[in-house]
Design a protein around this nucleic acid. Structure first.
Lengths: 150, 150
DNA sequence: CCAATTTCAGAGTAACTGATATCG
DNA sequence: CCGATATCAGTTACTCTGAAATTG
């Protein structure tokens, strides 16, 4: 079949931006009931998987500056959702971890987030989901390595 | 082989957020020389492909409020990068389109953006790129349709 | 002294909610 | 009068740059 001139395919950069915009909106609604901001929720999630990360490590992993991350971490600590202990090997480093309250709150919010993710992935064939995740992870690594050359 | 316990796979929601964060950072650097913000660049790109969109249409497509979009559009109009003409069929609607200056500016910036996209996609097998784009587009549509039910 | 970490302070970007006016 | 559009005004969310102190 000779194709009828289709709409030009939007760039990956563009689509990622739009999807992200939509996700943020939805997440904010879903997190509002628990008085959690999106960056706060994100930090909690990361700390659940990787307890003991320092502010510097967290910020690098999130591709934001340590100054931005410290604010998030500070808010979580103030609410006793996160505890930060001095690294035994380096007194300057504070290693963060969830408190029981943090774990509990995170557990109570997770279903709402999972529901959103399920809703978005509904339209994507299961076999392709792994491909998408792998591709995005590759892009993430490249963005982390690129400018810093750390 | 019995697998050694791997790191838990991060969620798609999470990875999209991180990638987007990195992209925004890079884009801002690359656009700074032309005194363009990321939302401004995005709007110019969309208008190149779809001339004649109104502010309301543009904002829906971008998953942001019309109030947010009007600011972007206003800035572009003030710099004479975008022109807005009254719809002949509806005096309330203003249809936007690039001016020659807007087209020229966009053309001069595009290579820098394309370079970033190429860099990010370098690590993704070409055959998988279409899958990623399709999946993300599906997610975008779902986000647009969901809450509005428009 | 240097590099990395933490953290305060001030800006800045980009989005939001609320409200008003106009058009068909 | 209603629904969609445009748009002004004020506010919030999140990140940034700059600078300073601390530690190994």
């Amino acid at each position: 079949v000779t194709a009828i001139p289709e709409d030009a395919a939007p760039s990956v950069l563009y689509v990622i931006g739009r999807v992200n915009q939509g996700i943020r909106r939805e997440m904010r609604k879903r997190l509002a009931g628990w008085d959690l901001s999106l960056p706060e929720y994100t930090a909690l999630s990361v700390l659940e998987d990787r307890p003991g990360l320092s502010n510097a490590q967290l910020s690098r992993r999130s591709l934001i500056t340590p100054q931005s991350m410290i604010e998030v971490l500070g808010a979580l600590e103030a609410r006793d959702l996160v505890r930060r202990d001095v690294d035994p090997a380096h007194a300057r480093v504070l290693r963060a971890a969830l408190t029981p309250a943090g774990r509990e709150l995170l557990a109570s919010v997770k279903p709402a987030v999972a529901a959103l993710e399920d809703q978005l992935l509904e339209g994507v064939p299961p076999r392709q989901r792994a491909v998408v995740l792998a591709a995005l992870t590759t892009m993430m690594d490249r963005l982390a390595a690129g400018p810093d050359a750390r």
